[in-house]
């Protein structure tokens, strides 16, 4: 009998709950996140203002909902760029091999040695700081190598497996082999990689905007709000606590989900 996968369940529940809240935040927030004097200034958390208010009397819970939306959408865009380009490069080089594979992997080794935030900072300083699109592009580019590596390993390990060989013997095209035979079988590796990538993207985006070179107001992201909150640490510690906890909760629940996915597939692989 199979043991219940607590990580997968807890991760799914938490992630779905957060996703629902964030989705809700796109359409409706308790107060207008940018409206001044939605309540008294520096009001401690109360039933009216769940996370209190800031120096302008803005409702922090509404701001956090909106900010989480910004952070998550940037992270998802980053993930999309990184995962699509990276997986494509990784799948092709892993399956076909050859000199292109060699060269790309060398380059990859060199790039992955460098921390993603440092690389993203370099790209950002080239593209120009302060724009949401530039943050997405910079982070997306930086996330390509790690996805390429994971995908390449997964595809390369399947290249000489018997069922792939027989598919080839039966005259299946490379595209069919890659998409129909290989891709589903690499899911156990790629799915956890996606959750890790998402977490890294959230943390990287939050760091960038914390540094003041990421998304800027009016579409403040969680990182920017934290740097704002740091200035009010004496007067409104709940601002930093609330915002930070949302970041932690977000990364934690997706991390649990990834752990659960890995555990589920440990027997399969």
């Amino acid at each position: 009998m199979r043991k219940r996968n607590g990580f997968l369940i807890a991760g799914l529940v938490l992630t779905c709950a957060l996703a629902a809240l964030i989705l809700l935040g796109f359409f409706w927030t308790p107060y207008d996140p940018n409206a001044m004097a939605a309540g008294p200034k520096f009001d401690a958390p109360s039933p009216a203002h769940w996370m209190g208010t800031d120096n302008f009397g803005r409702d922090i819970f509404s701001r956090v909902l909106k900010g989480a939306g910004t952070t998550v959408s940037i992270a998802l865009a980053t993930l999309l760029i990184g995962a699509v380009c990276g997986s494509l490069a990784g799948a092709l080089t892993g399956y076909f091999g050859g000199p292109a594979d060699e060269v790309l992997m060398r380059l990859n080794d060199a790039l992955t040695a460098f921390p993603s935030i440092l690389l993203a900072l370099v790209v950002i300083s080239i593209l120009g700081p302060g724009s949401r699109l530039n943050v997405m592009t910079a982070l997306g580019l930086v996330f390509i190598p790690s996805f390429a590596r994971v995908t390449r390993t997964a595809f390369a390990s399947l290249r000489d497996v018997n069922y792939i060989k027989s598919a080839r013997l039966m005259g299946a095209s490379s595209r069919r082999i890659l998409l129909v035979h290989m891709l589903p079988n690499t899911a156990p590796v790629l799915l956890p990689a996606l959750t890790i990538g998402f977490n890294n993207a959230v943390l990287a985006e939050a760091s960038m905007s914390f540094l003041g070179i990421g998304a800027t107001p009016p579409n403040a992201s969680l990182g920017y709000m934290l740097s704002e909150a740091q200035g009010m640490l004496f007067a409104a510690p709940w601002y930093a606590a609330g915002t930070g906890l949302v970041v932690v909760l977000l990364v934690f629940s997706v991390g649990l989900l990834g752990e659960g996915l890995r555990r589920r597939d440990r027997g399969v692989l």
């Binding site: 640490l233 930093a240 930070g244 970041v247 932690v248 990364v251 752990e259």
Partner: peptide, 29 residues
């Protein structure tokens, strides 16, 4: 084992800038 893994995930989820703010709040302020 489960609790430890969860704790580990939590440790990885806390971004340094938030820890930094928490530390300055508790030990500084």
């Amino acid at each position: 084992e489960g609790a430890r893994t969860a704790l580990n995930q939590l440790g990885m989820a806390v971004p340094p800038f938030f820890t930094g703010i928490l530390l300055s709040w508790v030990f500084g302020v």
